[in-house]
């Protein structure tokens, strides 16, 4: 795995605007539900698949349904990592400082999702 900063110039500015709008929209939805029905109900929308939905429809249009299916397959492992994220926050947020709880939860998401993805990819070959 490598990071290439130059890749940031590849997508057109419109793509970044669409991504920001989707993130803001889903977060506003989660916030509104939280205000109207309580934080537990709002929490359901912290794992709402809207970003994936947008990505899948865009990729299907530009690169075909098969490539979109590949993204959904990868997102399965990201979603399993989200369960790990929520478990870590639930068990640590009242005993650790918030920043530490969220940092460890994010690392747990990355560890769970990338490890399972790598294992499943190896098994698939």
């Amino acid at each position: 795995m490598r990071l290439r900063i130059g890749e940031l110039r590849r997508p057109p500015p419109r793509d970044w605007v669409v991504r920001f709008a989707f993130g803001a929209g889903v977060s506003a939805l989660a916030g509104a539900v939280s205000v109207l029905a309580g934080p537990r109900a709002g929490g359901l929308f912290l794992a709402f698949p809207a970003i994936l939905l947008a990505s899948v429809t865009l990729i299907a249009k530009e690169e075909g349904v098969r490539q979109a299916g590949q993204d959904v397959w990868g997102a399965t492992f990201g979603a399993l990592g989200l369960i790990g994220f929520a478990v870590v926050v639930t068990t640590t947020v009242v005993v650790w400082p918030l920043w530490l709880s969220l940092t460890v939860a994010t690392l747990a998401w990355a560890a769970v999702s990338l490890t399972l993805y790598a294992a499943a990819t190896r098994l698939r070959r």
Binding site: S34, L44, F45, A47, A75, L82, A86
Partner: peptide
């Protein structure tokens, strides 16, 4: 935050 994270469990399972 705790209540939201508990709700997120369910949302992530749905995801």
């Amino acid at each position: 935050v705790l209540a939201s994270a508990r709700g997120m469990w369910i949302g992530a399972a749905g995801f």
